[in-house]
Design a binder for these strands. Structure first.
Lengths: 250, 250
DNA sequence: CAAATAGTGTCTGTTAGACAATATACT
DNA sequence: AGTATATTGTCTAACAGACACTATTTG
């Protein structure tokens, strides 16, 4: 098997033709709702359908670098703004018939971004937009991207439990209330403000105080909130667990 | 970008040549020690080095199916025995220079198996063996397989916390003590027998009693233990958390 | 002032973990 | 008999979640 592997390798033509793409499930929060970056396909197959931003991996780039490049192209971002976006590998999707043209293995990635400007329409990107996740049901999605998105959303919900990545949806400085809004938005239900506040501050390394406070209180009243930045923890211990989901366990 | 993608797709020769392999980090427990399935490479590159079992994905098989096929080929297993092995995708590894011959993206998988017979040397498999994980340091590993194994081991440790997959290292019926031995072996340190026992039985759906007990007590004395089988839970709630690892958190 | 919000205090039920105790079965 | 092991009991500290309360700010 490895002998054959070795011999075959010297003439790539002997391999079944496989293409490798990198796709990105990019999430952000706009106006209190979870949004997802989608592009509109301008050519068959799935012409006119929505799809995840992505494309063929370039010859000399790592998978994650390819994903970051695709993200940069579609969002028009670069430099520090781009670097602050959290990006991780989500998983690979390689069902033989997932692309009608040929065998394509997609290495999907997951990104958490703070609120970003609308995608630059001027670039070479096809129409790209931030779509509320709640509006996904009404969209036709290309390939198996509906499944990929589902997996990405579940991964995001799970990551918020045991990592401090919720802060990646926010700017460098944020209030506990803003952080709570991230959790409520991603998890899809309200949390108890008092308990959340105490819990966040008690987890070592989750957030650290900047010493400063917001300039103004809430738009409808209330005191000014203290400002925090992300701490140095890479895992939350103890974790912030989602309220029991007995139903989903079996 | 998608236009180009579409056009390019009709002639696979236009793509940079990429090969996709499926590799398997297969773990089992033998004589109280965690073991890993490795093969010995019989041809360059990395001739004579150890490597994960794996090979090119076949044209009409899904990624996970390819991994199961490779696992079957190397272990000589089939049917029910093969089906009981837990198999999941671990992640994809695609650094441009990870294979000196050409661009190869490896989709790694992770397998948990009960104690299995030694790999059938008669098959077309190259020399395959179960190696104690503790002996890995003394091995030369091909490609980036050392990194893949590391990631697989960490995933395994983590999965034992919040899923009932520890049972997949055991036969269909097992005692709580045997289950504890799995945790101790994978996590690498002893657990409190009394607390573990109570905890396992208190997690809904983790294990269910068969009503029977072992035929004999322990080899050095002690009562007969009750037998259990895996329950219907897919997630452990509450989870069995590893003892605090404050150090690894930052 | 009325309403909303940030942040803290208190209480209760659950859980993790240390430790102890008991009963059983091996050599 | 002596020892190891399975299983259960007890206690304590930590934690999650419910609820209440105070102080602060906006309109």
């Amino acid at each position: 098997m490895n002998e054959q592997e070795f011999l075959a390798a010297y003439d790539p033509r002997d391999h079944p033709a496989v293409a490798v793409t990198v796709d990105v499930v990019a999430l952000t929060i706009r106006e209190g709702a979870l949004h997802l970056l989608l592009v509109r396909r301008g050519a068959p197959p799935f012409e006119g359908h929505s799809a995840l931003p992505g494309g063929f991996v370039h010859p000399d780039e790592d998978l994650i670098a390819g994903a970051r490049r695709e993200l940069a192209e579609e969002t028009g971002l670069g430099g520090e703004r781009l670097r602050r976006i959290h990006l991780e590998q989500l998983g690979s999707y390689g069902a033989p018939d997932r692309d009608p043209r040929m065998r394509v293995v997609s290495v999907a990635h997951l990104a958490f971004a703070p609120d970003l400007p609308d995608p630059a329409a001027g670039s070479d990107a096809e129409e790209a937009l931030w779509l509320p996740v709640s509006a996904l049901a009404s969209r036709q999605l290309a390939f198996d991207h509906a499944r990929v998105i589902e997996d990405g959303l579940e991964r995001a919900r799970s990551k918020l439990e045991y990592t401090p990545l919720a802060t990646r949806f926010l700017d460098a400085e944020f209030t506990v209330t803003e952080l709570r809004a991230v959790y409520e938005t991603v998890w899809g239900h309200p949390l108890h403000p008092g308990n959340f506040h105490r819990k966040v501050l008690s987890v070592p390394g989750f957030v650290e105080s900047t010493g400063a406070s917001t300039e103004r209180g809430g738009s409808r009243g209330g005191p000014r909130a203290k400002l925090y930045r992300a701490g140095d923890a890479r895992l939350l211990h103890p974790a912030l667990l989602r309220p029991a989901r007995e139903e989903t366990v079996r």
